[in-house]
Amino acid sequence: MSKTDNKTITQLRTELGELLAWFESDEFTPEQAVDKFTEAEALAAQIETQLAEHKHQITVLKKKFDEAE
């Protein structure tokens, strides 16, 4: 998967999922919520940026397959 800041989209999504779980858990405290929410917004923005900006790298092999080597 595509990478930014050494984190893949999968990793970013996992982190976002963990944050969401915290918001829905008994560990939730209003004092921490604002910071966690800011963190979640940053993760979401990073995910969107990665998805929007990353292009595929397509390589058509020069190797010919019409003859056995």
Binding site: F23, P30, A33, L51
Partner: peptide, 24 residues
Amino acid sequence: DAREIITSTRERVRRMASATERAL
């Protein structure tokens, strides 16, 4: 589908905002 992921990501963040608002 990246578009689905963006939608679901926004939905997740929205849920967090709702949870915070509800708690407050």
